[in-house]
Design a protein around this nucleic acid. Structure first.
Lengths: 162, 162
DNA sequence: TGTAAGTATCTTCCTAGTAAACTAACACTG
DNA sequence: CAGTGTTAGTTTACTAGGAAGATACTTACA
């Protein structure tokens, strides 16, 4: 019967540890959902809404050589299915920010490339985004906090890519 | 012209700091997108997929008194619009996990309540989720890392709720 | 009491995304 | 060089969710 108590105590200790873990992760989920939209508030010079995927596409293209990347690569980087990215590219192209360029070496691939307008937009969006990051993240956690967060995140990311 | 050099140096130092900030936050975004799906893998006993919203609804209801909450409260907690949540509730109800209960004190409100089947599902889902959290988060960051992450997240979340 | 303002849910219409089938181009193998 | 498998991109059919309006109820106040 001591055994039963022992087992009970062990189970509840385990459960408590689980609950702490769930809580801590839950905090991250909440923080992420709360902060993310703040970091895109008003980043579009035109005052329109800027969706997360648009933002990511613009930034990634701008820091890529030639301001362009194959569709499939970009799709993977922004976590979209290939079909989904086709339509996102259509919308960006309709707005004049993105153009498709064909690849002579491999005629299957299509580059998604920033137009000059797209590149300019990307630049403005990036500086406004950095401003918001300073206000909503750097000012809150401090430089050390941000570095710590980054390093924890890197470990998680690397481990998640088995 | 010393001024110009000075200005140049200042600008580039600022830009570099911004880039580090953007990088660190980008790491968090990547980590989050990489880890989140791993934490839902196979949590449904039936082997079906379990979407994030379903998961959150089940857990939150289970830890609520009476296993129920007003629709609008639950909607806010899982970051859905009221209209969107109405339909999510419909789907959960169609599967038999959730039932609507009316509130006599205020006949506008409708409780979303777990059925016995829903409560059982929630229990299994939670233990499997905790297992995955241990493997993909606790084992990677260690107890201290998790606590640190939780505390940073809490600060971000609290600040984001102006 | 009667009325205005506010709140909770649902409904309708629309958009962004996925999965799967399809086409075209490349790459390997015999 | 024909045959087979693989990869990049698009198309199609479908689903989840948002925004705005409609409805029913509640609260505050004159």
């Amino acid at each position: 019967m001591g055994d039963a108590l022992e087992a009970d105590r062990a189970r509840s200790a385990q459960e408590q540890a689980d609950d702490e873990l769930i809580t801590d992760w839950g905090l991250l989920v909440e923080a992420f959902k709360a902060v993310s939209p703040l970091l895109l508030e008003g980043v579009h010079p035109g005052g329109e809404e800027m969706s997360g995927p648009w933002f990511e596409v613009l930034l990634r293209l701008q820091r890529s050589p030639g301001h362009r990347l194959p569709m499939s690569v970009l799709a993977r980087e922004v976590s979209l299915s290939s079909g989904g990215f086709t339509k996102l590219a259509d919308r960006l192209a309709a707005k004049g920010y993105l153009a498709r360029e064909s690849c002579p070496e491999d005629r299957r691939v299509v580059y998604a490339a920033l137009t000059p307008a797209g590149s300019e937009l990307a630049g403005e969006v990036k500086t406004r985004h950095a401003e918001l990051l300073r206000r909503h993240v750097l000012d809150v956690l401090g430089p050390d906090g941000v570095r710590t967060l980054g390093s924890l995140a890197r470990r998680l990311r690397d481990s998640a890519r088995d």
